[in-house]
């Protein structure tokens, strides 16, 4: 089991970095090329959501992304530090304008894309776990 962990300040410009890292590690882990677009999109959605939650709740801690390569699957965990979170805004506010519903749409995209996904929340924050099957690594010549 090999792990890559990434922590980034809750800034929108870093979400792209998380996407690139996740796609690179997924490719290395043997996730099918055709599925890499989905990995990229799902990680982006999960990170965007975590960044939004941190920003709207005034949390300065970084967003955490853990990429785990197992024998048969590649897993990603995106964690926020919003207590009781998993998407609930602490202030209960609903943003006006175009941002309205972005959060639900992000989760809709994730659940539409990823077969194995789990969203949990606890007193230390929420976690989105996703996984994809990996093909066995080709034998090196």
């Amino acid at each position: 089991m090999a792990t890559v962990e990434l922590r980034f300040s809750a800034l929108p410009e870093h979400v792209r970095t998380a996407r690139l890292v996740a796609a690179a590690v997924a490719r290395r882990a043997g996730v099918d090329e055709a599925v890499l677009d989905e990995v990229r999109l799902a990680v982006g959605e999960a990170c965007s959501r975590a960044v939004g939650l941190h920003v709207s709740n005034g949390i300065v801690a970084p967003v955490r992304v853990v990429l785990v390569e197992d024998e048969k699957k590649f897993s990603i965990e995106v964690g926020d530090e919003v207590p009781g979170g998993a998407g609930e805004r602490a202030d209960g506010a609903v943003e006006s304008g175009d941002a309205e519903g972005d959060d639900e749409m992000g989760l809709a995209v994730i659940s539409g894309l990823v077969d194995d996904v789990e969203v949990t929340s606890g007193e230390h924050g929420g976690v989105i776990r996703m996984s994809w099957p990996t093909a066995p690594a080709p034998a090196l010549p």
Partner: peptide, 16 residues
């Protein structure tokens, strides 16, 4: 090259 739900939200906002 890439579109996520934030982008979808903006397009829906534009449509509105």
């Amino acid at each position: 090259d890439f579109l996520d739900s934030t982008g979808l939200g903006v397009l829906v906002g534009g449509l509105k």
